[in-house]
């Protein structure tokens, strides 16, 4: 299930190797093993080199891809989760709390999709309701009050499209996040770990530094949504994904993100630990630069950056 369509041959080779390694007949298998190992290296290269936009989208959504929870477990010490929007309920699609990264104290917020079905349901697949964005803003403002830098981790298909979400003003909850993040006087760093789905992702991305993992995606609409609007056919998502220009490379070319964080060659889902190490290093590097800026400089940098986005004649 967790094998992507273009990984199938590679996985078959790996399974074959595992079986050989298990077998007791060492004399005949030894040369076979060496041969197979070489083949696997070659196959890995052809599998993961030059992923197209759709393959990248699938990698970005991979259930084994490290997310907010993994990042907190692996890279953050003394994490203290804080809950709730103080009005309606605690939205589990966004985890938030105080945490220490390499000795630096942060307010950390991130979408959580969950890694198995039970978890997915608990976290609503990372699709936040208005109370999720209101919790986020509450805690970001709290961070400002106590002069803590903010780290947001983005991994969501989008804000939840549901009746309750609309009744409780999903649009307003996102809009207020966008406006207020624009005037927070502390450093804000955002990393798109997996999927950056539209407004629900942007609501946590009004940052001084917006970084993306190399196989993450961030766009205005999902390829499925786009295909369904254009051709009444979500199955044409593959075609749409190429048109929407949502990969990290695309966003770097469009000057929307500051940095692409490299994933290991075989993608984040095959090497979560190394991926998270890279994420951690990038965050620290940018934080050390931002921490030297005054609140006025931080505001000016962030506001100018967003003010200049757009192409027109």
């Amino acid at each position: 299930m967790a094998t992507l369509y273009f990984e199938r041959e590679l996985v078959e080779l790996k399974d074959k190797l595992a079986k050989l390694l298990d077998s007791s007949d060492t004399t005949t298998t030894k040369s076979l093993i060496t041969k197979l190992k070489k083949e696997i290296v070659k196959k890995e290269k052809s599998t993961y080199q030059n992923l197209d936009a759709w393959q990248t989208t699938l990698v970005a959504r991979h259930p084994k891809r490290p997310g907010t929870t993994d990042f907190i477990k692996t890279c953050i010490s003394d994490f203290i989760e804080l809950h709730g929007d103080r009005h309606y309920r605690n939205d589990k699609a966004i985890t938030a709390g105080l945490g220490t990264l390499d000795g630096h104290k942060f307010m950390i917020l991130g979408h959580v999709k969950g890694s198995n079905t039970t978890d997915n349901l608990k976290h609503n697949f990372g699709m936040a309701n208005p109370e999720g964005y209101r919790k986020s803003l509450r805690l970001m403002q709290l961070a400002q009050k106590f002069n803590l830098p903010i780290l947001t981790l983005i991994d969501t298909p989008g804000a939840y499209p549901g009746i309750g979400a609309e009744d409780r003003q999903q649009a307003e909850s996102i809009a207020v996040c966008l406006r207020e993040m624009g005037i927070l006087k502390v450093p804000i760093i955002s990393v798109v770990l997996g999927e950056g789905g539209s407004g629900g992702a942007l609501a946590l991305a009004v940052a001084n530094r917006l970084l993306m993992l190399s196989n993450a995606v961030f766009g205005v609409i999902s390829p499925e949504g786009c295909a369904s609007i254009l051709w009444d056919n979500p199955a044409k998502a593959k075609q749409a994904s190429g048109m929407l220009k949502q990969t990290a490379r695309d966003l770097k070319d469009l000057n929307i993100i500051e940095e692409i964080i490299d994933e290991p060659f075989s993608c984040a889902h095959n090497n979560p630990l190394l991926t998270l190490e890279n994420v951690k290093a990038a965050i620290i590097r940018h934080y050390l630069v931002l921490s030297k800026l005054s609140p006025t400089q931080l505001l000016a940098q962030r506001q100018k950056k967003f003010r200049l986005i757009g192409r027109y004649k």
Binding site: I174, A175, L178, R179, M181, G182, I183, S198, G199, L202, A205, V206, F218, G219, V220, I221, C226, I229, L244, K245, Q246, D250, L251, L254, I256, Q303, F306, R307, I309, G310, R311
Partner: peptide
């Protein structure tokens, strides 16, 4: 948002909202 301009459209949401401050 106008999907024909991709991420640039999405970012106009932030640009306009920030300006309202």
């Amino acid at each position: 948002a106008r999907m024909q301009e991709g991420i640039l459209s999405l970012m106009q949401m932030a640009k306009t909202s920030i300006a309202l401050n």
